[in-house]
Write a protein that binds this DNA or RNA. Sequence first.
DNA 1: ATATACTTTACTAAATTTGTCAAGTATTTT
DNA 2: AAAATACTTGACAAATTTAGTAAAGTATAT
Lengths: 145, 145
Amino acid sequence: MLKLSTKGQYGVRAMFEISRGHPGRPVAIREIAERQDVSVAYLEQILNTLRKAGLISSVRGPGGGYLLSRQPEAISIGEILRSLDGPVALTACQDPLAGCVRADGCVTSLLWKALGEKIEGFLDRMTLRDLLAGSKFGGERAVGA
Amino acid sequence: MLKLSTKGQYGVRAMFEISRGHPGRPVAIREIAERQDVSVAYLEQILNTLRKAGLISSVRGPGGGYLLSRQPEAISIGEILRSLDGPVALTACQDPLAGCVRADGCVTSLLWKALGEKIEGFLDRMTLRDLLAGSKFGGERAVGA
DNA sequence: ATATACTTTACTAAATTTGTCAAGTATTTT
DNA sequence: AAAATACTTGACAAATTTAGTAAAGTATAT
Ligand code: FES
Ligand code: FES
């Protein structure tokens, strides 16, 4: 349960490739595709969305590619995922775009809300810089392996 | 993103109805269906799964219905959801039933693992007793509304 | 000019979700 | 025993979502 779409996953991995690319020089889509083993056509779709969301900018023509719009520490994983897959919406009732009729008497309402906020909080605190550093995972508790 | 299936949601709400039913007396499936506004046929499927998972037991015949197998504080939301929708598996690589080929060099591996553990932790700490009490949500932080 | 490389839209096959339906089994009440 | 209640089981299908592919177009550097 609670699967993350491949689009979101690929998006994060693509952003990682862009952020570790040589600073100032754009990273070509083909390079990202090869390094992360994703088709160029699918990446086009994904990167286009991320560009419209303002997370990256693009340079056309030979030698072109993609660049981060901000520093790695200023781009959170949450922002990337939200751009591609919309906000965390565990249930239709929690979806900011939908909403619920009888949100009052509903016991589970607060439960899903609390979990949703926990997830968003985690994803928003985690940035590309953390991915580059390759640690800091686990939060309060230490991770076993 | 990160939607919870209706099956899981209905399952939790059904379990809530059973736990707040008069102690010792089984709750009929029709009563659950009416109170939670879910079709009887769909609930049959869901409750059957939960029964096979050992979370509830059933009584047949007139006056029959469903009973909790344990005390409300001993049944976690996580257990209910896992019974119906399988374990939290944000990515195919994190799925205990699947597994990944190149889990090593993968930067995002630890990220999804950490998030998955956070979610499971939350769901496993939360029990039917908490739903009955109607509070305790929010964890570290207080919830706004 | 030409090659490189991003841009945009359309479309579709596969998987998953969300149920419905029908027939059966067990138990209690009359 | 008969009837009514109520859980049990398995098959199946519509709707939705996901996960991509394909193709034609636009901009830029050499
Ligand atoms: S049914 Fe909408 S909040 Fe529970
Ligand atoms: S590709 Fe499997 S862990 Fe990242």
